[in-house]
Design a binder for these strands. Structure first.
Lengths: 262, 262
DNA sequence: CAGTGGTCTAGACCACATC
DNA sequence: ATGTGGTCTAGACCACTGA
């Protein structure tokens, strides 16, 4: 007789431990993972906060430790939580105290220095319609309202990146004003703290093209010089397209770094 | 009394199961992984071949199943082996029957089609000195001998990529001749089959620059048009820099795709 | 010191692939 | 039918963290 009244039971296939059913259903650890993600999304544990320890979670679900460990291990590998032996398991945050801030920034200076956390100059932050490209990236309509934010990122006084970010108003109402007022270094931190949106995955398409007039003046490079353009679509934990941004970069002294081992 | 005579014991900390020692040493699963990698490198199981099943490996090391599973799981996540339930565990291969061939190719057509396995036209394959850039990528000397291979990759009759590959003679003697004669689609397959080198990790630096005269004529684009240049360093399983290549691409209809969730 | 996650064991049953 | 990896359990001990 264990205390099992206020359990958080997995969403599907609730009975199983004793009965031999559940042939077509997900493995238990996957159900637990799904449910834990749901609990993170619901705000039960906010970014930066600690989850209960494994034993407590295991008891809560009436499952074995190993099963819970496997669920959490997958969440770790997906960057959703981070764990430290002796301390606990924490919801990932893009915020100041967060684990691996700016982890999606691939632009590096040729000496290896990464573009992360450097000062950011806000050039514009307005309300607008999405337009064709952003609409395609966000999988919405070209006439849908978005916040458009244009920023210049600098390293040691030199302009390096022009970032133009589109945030769907549907997900982040009023973001253009919030961003203009706060001028934060990390947009994802704002999405976390003000809208409860966790960015956990991005998809980037990289191309080469000639710089526009505006870009060449901002980046202090010759007119029509070749620049790298990164189109990033950011996905929230629940899989929605939350942000589309273009990153334009002169690659005379910088490059886009990608390391693969899978 | 178990049969433990002809065991493959882990390289360090050989006694442990019964004695309580081994405080500063690697976890057992890490030792097993290291040793299994050593056995793959030694050619005990060649690319495409099947490893013994978990129980046999576990018995061989005198360890528990779970420990071996964890070791192999890490090897899977590093792309070194692949496993299928009911079939077994196989050493990864870039060859024709291999698991995820061309998995390092990030260039996609804008409609999503990936550059993988398409016909390749060999333009040159010669013996030469490395030169400064390749030497930096291979971490050797500019005067060291290399095989230089220049290839044009096409999709549906249209030229898409110019690939220039540098292979250190020290690792792959005579490669330029071998490649010219075989003109294979995948260089990594040749490295596997002829030199026993497994490419398991690559590092790519992406830049934008103007096309050279030669490139613009090969790719049938205007002179000095902006092109994407990918510099790839390929690492062998043992961590050596085996190949350095540049991939030059017109990104009018193609892009370099990178998906991240960590 | 108590609490955390990390490692490891020795079993059990299952779905799946192959013959 | 046999063999494979995948899941799951119920314990044990360890190293590390923080108060």
């Amino acid at each position: 007789m264990c205390a099992k009244e206020q359990n958080h039971s997995p969403p599907t296939d609730p009975s199983r431990a004793a009965s031999g059913l559940g042939p077509t259903s997900l493995p238990l650890y996957a159900q637990v993972k799904k449910h834990l993600i749901h609990r993170v999304l619901s705000g039960e544990w906010k970014p930066g906060e600690r989850l209960p320890n494994e034993a407590q979670i295991a008891e809560g679900y009436g499952l074995s430790l190993g099963t819970i460990r496997k669920a959490i291990r997958e969440m770790v590998s997906e960057g959703l939580v981070a764990r430290w032996p002796g301390r606990g398991t924490f919801v990932t945050s893009h915020g100041p105290g967060g684990h691996r801030p700016f982890r999606f920034n691939c632009v590096h200076r040729d000496d290896g220095e990464r573009m992360a956390g450097q000062p950011t100059r806000y050039l514009d932050s307005r309300h607008d319609r999405a337009g064709e490209r952003a609409a395609a990236g966000l999988a919405t309509d070209a006439d849908d309202p978005v916040a458009v934010v244009v920023r210049l990122r600098e390293l040691e006084g030199q302009p390096v990146l022009v970032e133009t970010t589109y945030l769907a108003e549907a997900h982040c109402p009023g973001a253009h004003k919030l961003l203009w007022e706060g001028q934060p270094n990390s947009i994802y931190q704002i999405l976390e703290q003000n809208y409860g949106i966790l960015v956990t995955r991005v998809e980037e398409k990289v191309r080469a093209r000639a710089a526009t007039e505006n870009e060449s003046s901002l980046l202090e490079i010759p007119a029509s010089a070749p620049v790298l353009e990164v189109e990033r679509t950011a996905f929230s934990l629940s899989g929605e397209r939350v942000e589309w941004r273009t990153i334009v970069c002169d690659t005379e002294q910088y490059h886009y770094l990608n390391q693969q081992n899978r």
